[in-house]
Each structure stands twice: as C-alpha cells, then as structure tokens.
C-alpha cells in the first residue's frame, strides 16, 4: 500500500460516506427512503454486521446517543472516523508528511496480533448476533 493509493482510497471512502449521509438526511426530510441497500440482507434476510450504521449515525447527529447505541454501536466508530480522517489527510497533505500511512501500517500490525484479532472478532460476532436478535 503506497501513500497516494491509501490517501485516495480513504478520501473516496469518506466522501462517499458524507454523500450517503446527506442523501439519507434529504430523504428523511422528504419522508421517503430508498429502502434496503444491503445486498447481504436482501439475499439472506439477515442483517449484516454493520447493518443499521446509517440509522445509528443519523441518531447521533440528532443527539440521541442512547438510541444510536441501541441500533448499532458501530455508528460511533463511523462518526469519529468520518470526522477525523478528512482533517488528518488534509493536514498530512499540507505538511507533506505521511503520519496517516505510518499509523495505518502500525494499526494493521497491531490488529493482526492473535489476542487483539481474537477480541475484535468476538466483538464483531457479538455485535452481529445482537443485530440478528434485534432484527434490524
């Protein structure tokens, strides 16, 4: 993974994230969603591990933190990532540094460690189980 590739990828990801949120807010105002977008859910009828993130983020934006936590805790992760990433990328580009790339590699290594990976996998599975239980 090179610096440019990672930064372009992350920029595109966060931009599409913001575009999606703006679209959702707009659709909510008009009182009309486009319904289901998750392919996994349409195929299997079960929610995927990150189903409900959008609803969760929208609750956070409106200040209903508890409701957001109940829908999908991943919403908090997404909000912090969406807030921090663009600023970090811009700061890196202005200072011509690659601190984000270093951080990425560092995190990748940390996550790949067995105990950490195990805990994360269990967390994701638990959250997924809860999603299915809640029938999101």
């Amino acid at each position: 993974m090179t610096r440019n590739k990672l930064y372009t990828l992350l920029t595109v990801l966060s931009l599409s994230g913001y575009a999606w949120l703006v679209f959702q807010l707009y659709a909510e105002q008009q009182n009309s969603g486009i319904g289901q977008v998750c392919i996994f859910k349409s195929v299997t009828n079960l929610p995927c591990p990150s189903c409900g993130s959008t609803r969760s983020i929208l609750e956070i934006v409106q200040g209903n933190l508890l409701a957001a936590l109940y829908i999908n805790p991943l919403g908090f992760l997404f909000v912090s990532v969406l807030l921090i990433l663009p600023l970090w990328i811009i700061a890196d580009l202005l200072q011509k540094s690659d601190s984000l790339l270093k951080f990425y590699h560092h995190t990748e290594k940390w996550i790949s460690k067995k105990p950490v990976a195990l805990v994360l996998i269990v967390l994701v599975l638990l959250n997924w189980g809860w999603n299915i239980y809640k029938d999101l």
Partner: peptide, 25 residues
C-alpha cells in the same frame, strides 16, 4: 465481510470492507 482480504494479509482493507458491508456491495 472482507475475509478474502484478511486471508491475503491486507488487514486494513479487510477491516474497511467488513465495516462498510463490503463497500456497499
């Protein structure tokens, strides 16, 4: 769920895929 990316060692991309539901598919 990004399992393919985890398997070939692209952990970062794997996490990204998992959390975004396969990048919206």
């Amino acid at each position: 769920f990004g399992v393919d990316r985890f398997m070939i060692g692209d952990t970062g991309l794997g996490v990204g895929k998992l959390l975004t539901c396969g990048g919206f598919g």
